[in-house]
Amino acid sequence: MTMPDINYDILRRVAETASAYRYKDIWITVGPEDGQLVIRVHDAKPTCEDCAIFPIAKVDYGSSPSVEVATIGSESNPVDLLNLEVPAGQMIPAGTYAADAVFWSQSAVEKFMIPYYASVYGDQADVVVQTLLTVLKPAAQDGSEPDPAFAIAHLPGSEYVTLANEGLPHLFLIRQSGRVEGAAKR
């Protein structure tokens, strides 16, 4: 078995993925797929050729608090943050995911997201930060954007399931209509 070269960037992303699953035992694999390294999470110990396997033990500090209701939007069009429907082509697998953080103002993006993502993406930070700064800018007043984004949701585990080079890992736009889509690089 030929192990892939694992650099600091991949290890940072493995650590970020493990952080999203801190309440359960998992295995993370890093292996080649379509010419790139892909990070995957498994509930049982996987067997794979040409991949690195990282066993991740849960942190034992009690159970997480239960959140039963979390919505954003308007009274006429609420969006259930615990059941965000991510369509096929945006994540693998497509399905329903619960957000672990949501940002709905440019100020929150600048104060909390920019420092975090600049740190995580290191030498790629300039592209990521520029993308984040433009995501929630107000839509043109000419009506050219009929369904503007009003929030950015961070979905646990989306670091490893977001399609490669298709957008910003972890981040999904919530549009005025309630539609959820990956935060594409601009």
Rank of each mutant, 00 (worst) to 15 (best):
T2E: 09
T2N: 09
M3C: 01
N7C: 02
Y8N: 10
L11Q: 15
A15L: 03
E16F: 00
T17H: 11
A18M: 13
S19L: 01
A20D: 13
R22E: 02
Y23F: 08
K24V: 05
K24T: 12
V30T: 15
G31D: 13
G31V: 13
E33T: 04
D34N: 12
D34M: 09
I39P: 12
R40E: 10
R40K: 12
V41L: 11
A44C: 02
E49F: 07
D50L: 10
C51A: 12
C51Q: 09
C51S: 06
A52N: 04
A52F: 06
I53H: 14
P55F: 01
P55S: 04
I56C: 10
A57L: 00
K58S: 07
Y61A: 08
G62M: 06
S64W: 08
S66M: 10
E68H: 05
E68L: 08
V69S: 07
A70K: 06
T71L: 06
I72G: 02
G73V: 09
S74H: 02
S76D: 13
V79F: 11
L81P: 08
L82M: 06
N83C: 05
L84F: 09
P87A: 15
A88N: 05
A88T: 14
M91Q: 12
M91S: 14
I92L: 14
A94L: 05
A99C: 10
D100W: 00
A101C: 05
W104P: 03
S107N: 11
S107C: 02
E110G: 07
E110T: 08
K111L: 12
K111F: 07
F112A: 08
F112N: 10
M113S: 11
P115V: 00
P115N: 05
Y117N: 12
G122C: 15
D123H: 02
D123E: 15
A125H: 04
A125L: 04
V127E: 13
V128I: 15
V128F: 06
L132D: 13
L132H: 14
L133C: 10
L136R: 08
L136Y: 05
L136I: 11
K137F: 06
K137M: 10
P138E: 05
P138F: 00
A140L: 12
Q141F: 09
Q141E: 15
D142C: 02
S144Y: 00
P146V: 07
D147R: 04
D147Q: 06
D147V: 04
A149C: 13
F150C: 01
I152E: 04
L155R: 06
L155Y: 10
P156G: 15
G157N: 02
S158H: 10
T162V: 15
A164F: 05
E166F: 05
G167T: 15
L168G: 06
P169M: 14
H170T: 15
F172G: 03
F172E: 02
R175I: 03
Q176P: 00
S177T: 08
V180Y: 08
E181A: 13
E181L: 14
A183G: 03
A184I: 06
R186I: 07
